[in-house]
Write a protein that binds this DNA or RNA. Sequence first.
DNA 1: CATACGATGAGCCGCATGGGTGATGTGCTG
DNA 2: CAGCACATCACCCATGCGGCTCATCGTATG
Lengths: 225, 225
Amino acid sequence: MTIKVIIVDDQAMVRAGFAALLAAQSDIDVVGEAPDGREGVEVSRRAHPDVVLMDVRMPEMDGLEAARQLLDPPRGVTHRPKVLMLTTFDVDDYVYEALRAGASGFLLKDAPPADLISAVRVVAAGEALLAPSVTRRLIADFARQRPAPRRDGPALRRSGLTPRETEVLELIARGLSNQEIAESLVLAEQTVKTHIGRVLAKLGLRDRAQAVIFAYESGLVTPGQ
Amino acid sequence: MTIKVIIVDDQAMVRAGFAALLAAQSDIDVVGEAPDGREGVEVSRRAHPDVVLMDVRMPEMDGLEAARQLLDPPRGVTHRPKVLMLTTFDVDDYVYEALRAGASGFLLKDAPPADLISAVRVVAAGEALLAPSVTRRLIADFARQRPAPRRDGPALRRSGLTPRETEVLELIARGLSNQEIAESLVLAEQTVKTHIGRVLAKLGLRDRAQAVIFAYESGLVTPGQ
DNA sequence: CATACGATGAGCCGCATGGGTGATGTGCTG
DNA sequence: CAGCACATCACCCATGCGGCTCATCGTATG
């Protein structure tokens, strides 16, 4: 079973190059080409490729929008190809948008030709593949985003809050009133008020609503769970 | 400049195989081996490799803990190698923990030998590389985690808030006072209070602090930007 | 031992906030 | 046209909350 591929890129020479490279493989068939996103979507709907090689920057409709349309097809369209994004420069936004859209891979055009060929095979097999530099960013992002519930943003660490004050802040961010916080911590309400006063002063906040915002923005508490 | 590599794996035969494979490359030197995580860390501290090939499952200290120690070294230790994790099975938890720890790559042992070699080069160059199946999971996780600011959680949609009320809620979640909201929307403060009263009633909340919490939890506002 | 810091608590004050009720105007819909 | 949802605003009231000052006590830290 050969892998059916279409190539969407606004530069005819690039299309020709890729087509020649891929068509030379016995297990890959180039079944279509298109010079922009809009035509790319049309060609894909007609040719039903397994893999769409999609340039990011194109006139008419860019590769990101085209990828979105192919990967989230309207009712009635059942064909859903794998999309392998290609770009000359690796700009973060492109990468993230493409991955969000559901692209199966993201390669730089300066990658070795062998990489492109193996990428097509990998993507056709339902797996995914990224350029090493993109992988590094994604990992860095992943590690930064959830370094195991981290409990303290930089802002929080440098705020000078004492442990007790931090504890009170968290309860504020859970929606408790002063009285409830007092009960929860077995304190007089007045003590809670003192703590809160210091928290607001140290963080430069006006009221508990802003304290809740700070708690979320700093990572003290996290949406979900 | 050759790439210095050490191999940490509890199976002697695997170590020998990888060592032979890598040593055959003119740009790669195998400068050490270890049969478990603990010794692996020691060997790494002594041999200062550029890249550590680290098996996940090992006696004494597993590869994840060893990776953590290498990538977050104690004071005084300045050497910080790249870590390339290897495993026979690709278990999610391993992958995520390894990436959190700061590993530069994650390969399955059944990958083609050429992949391992190129992976070492990629990682040594400061980039990252993952097995295609791992990449697919990471992308899926990424896409699921942030499917573009979604703007409305189910709770929000079914809350029955009018557009104006939603608008006011968002400003509350930005930390504005009633007076500031009034100015921002060009309203009398009393009108703002009316809106807020309805918001709190409809959502079953007590005060604006809880409203802020709701806004974050429902996705109306999002931490960061 | 002196000092500093954190936790606890009291008292007082003023205002923003939230609850309740009611009124007006507008636009959509049956 | 009647009815309804929505947005707008007024008046009143009780109080939760935040600001400010001051005091006690324990524990580090020098």
